[in-house]
Design a protein around this nucleic acid. Structure first.
Lengths: 220, 220, 220, 220
DNA sequence: CGCTAACCGAGACGGTACGTCCCGTCTTTTG
DNA sequence: CAAAAGACGGGACGTACCGTCTCGGTTAGCG
């Protein structure tokens, strides 16, 4: 209970045998491997431990429960998302949609993401961990895309910083939500055609609706 | 052995004691109550059975597992969604967004929906059950909204029926996905302002992008 | 509760559809077959019913529980025991020992006999059923053997009828007990050598000890 | 998976937490108590576990099934049997018969012994466990009795060691078998009179038949 | 010759126990 | 003093049978 549950490989303690750094990586690797082979609901702490060549107690010393472990194991995969400049806002959106869809098609992500979100509806600490480890980190993609579009003149600059932040949040929810829903709930493929149609819809909305000159505070 | 795990209280068999219809309703009620009190991850079959005043075997006779039971228990809640005519496409969208958000704010829905979707990534039968019991049934809302908007002249009629169907699917994924992501992943409230901004974005996109005159097959 | 649990195919009732006689035989056959294949502890009422092509209710209408059913199914096998005249008391004893051993070597008898006896230690009705269906019926063998030995002059006639009855009981317990113990508890074969040694011991004891002239009321 | 199901509280493993010795004793005590209260057929592993203040898994870690547990729980009772020197072979036999009868009259022994023997007809491991934990250990009584009788000159010394062993086995089967059969199958009391008559029969047979001078290898 | 009572099969019912799996914790020995 | 090993108390699983209870339907004997 007093043990710090941080993912940092070495806690403040100075005395005693230091925590193994190799173990940390091995555990996260084992977690992803177990997700691929077994899926979220059949993944067990004991199995992860034995895959990692580690005792169960070592896991519990570092993570409070399996949801937090899985969030950490999966979060790094989201950091691989990139937003290369494809020349236009619509192309950039289409690119990130397809990248995100590819990520959601990986078995470890597919099975784990919705599961930890479901858990988080009853677990404040987990909710916070998801937000900081995944959600907030990926909003960078929206920020970069907007800046680029503004530089290109495709989007105006928003004066109100609060409204600008709200726009970023909403666009993130729209893009991520639509892709997740298409891929996991409707269980239909996110292919090039879908990505193009979706990007067209979004970019049209952005250039005509909120984010467009003077549409945010009150629609016509 | 091959007893159909359908939610219908009486399988095709003609002989033998028929399945109890009261038990069926009691089980679904108990399932929702357990979701509210315990949440998905602490809900157990044994607990549902005893709440319903029913033996555990009676549950397993009718549902193959907890996920399928929960889908059936939750699906009926989605049928309460309505699309009253609020006079404009944007008002209609805003209305359905707020209704859907209210539904996702109910504890039984919040904790269960993402959980069964997560399970369904490894369970084809469950995926199909979610699709038929929830997803396909609620697309009716998009259909009604589009027809109404077309009648009002807010949206054009689409000639290609395949493209029309694709549009319905995508709009459904965008609306449901954005609301779900905002409410459960980002864990931020879907309030009136968010709903208005989102509706503005969507309707702007719809009237300018796909669904707008000749933008669907290929943008310039 | 009011239904008479007698093994007779037709209870005292006069009106209504009579109980099926074919079913009765089919059930006992199925019981023995299940004993052979599954053994006592894995024999189930449902399995016997389906083997016999009969509903479970039909079994319960006729037998109170599986122990009583098995006693009835096994009892008839004991009636096949015979005591052919082999010319001497010792040869007669040896003959019946080997016959009894052969009966106990049959899988249905082996697995069932001790099981129902074990049950009967807590079930008075079952104890009575075992006594009347098996134990008392087979004492006939001892009676015949004694009469024959007395006719041959190998054994004296006992004047006191109560003592005579006690002797029969004891000899029955000694023979049956020794064979059962050797076969099932010690789990060693009852072969010709064992049978001969045992018979020698018993007949020696009988002609010198109780049953011998004036040894029963008080040994020297 | 291949954990040795031995009754010893500590398996060969050297590392890890050792098995609790207190739990071991508590379980065997609880088993006997449950046998007394419920009898063999109503004794459940879960009930024994909760009586012993132990988890069900702890039982299964040490015994493969209920039968093996019960054999271990009951076996120690047989070790209480003694053979005090009563001055003559007949008195010694009578004494052990009455002691054995008293043991079989205890509710835990009565209900359990025949039950595990019945199970053992289909379970080689159980058969071996009964033999080593009960049967072979109690043959000591016959050995002691014979030595004493030989010292007294009541019985001759047997030259052939194989025949001597066979005699011990047979006498054990005769004594134990007769008492068990009288007590449990015939369900009649083993009182002093019965014990005296039986002892007379047996001792007469022993001094005149096998074990007597030159009758063992082949009677005329 | 139709009643009617008791039978029949099928199979769902509320229950109990099973033996297994995993949880998260706790004692050990080892490094 | 941490780490691996593994036993611990506990809880839920999904299954197997129990003995009972509807069902719809059959089969006598009696009136």
């Amino acid at each position: 209970m007093v043990t710090p549950m941080s993912p940092s490989p070495t806690p403040p303690s100075r005395t005693g045998r230091p925590r193994s750094v190799e173990a940390h990586a091995a555990i996260l690797d084992a977690t992803r491997a177990a997700l691929v082979e077994l899926g979220w609901s059949k993944l067990t702490m004991g199995d992860v431990a034995s895959r990692a060549g580690v005792a169960k107690t070592t896991l519990y010393r570092r993570w409070a429960n399996r949801s937090e472990l899985v969030v950490d194991a999966v979060a790094v995969l989201f950091d691989e998302l990139r937003l290369p400049d494809r020349g236009s806002l619509m192309a950039d959106v289409e690119g990130v949609v397809l990248q995100f869809a590819a990520l959601l098609d990986r078995p470890e992500t597919k099975t784990a993401l919705m599961a930890v979100v479901a858990e988080s509806t009853r677990d404040e600490a987990l909710r916070e961990r998801i937000r900081s480890a995944i959600v907030d980190r990926q909003k960078r993609l929206v920020l970069v895309g907007r800046e680029r579009a503004q530089a290109r003149g495709e989007l105006p600059y928003e004066d109100d910083p609060a409204q600008a932040a709200r726009n970023v949040d909403m666009i993130f929810d729209v893009i991520a939500g639509a892709v997740v829903h298409r891929a996991l709930v409707s269980a239909e493929p996110v292919d090039t055609r879908w990505a193009r149609n979706f990007s067209l819809l979004l970019v049209s909305g952005l250039t005509a609706g909120p984010g467009a000159p003077r549409a945010s505070s009150g629609p016509a």
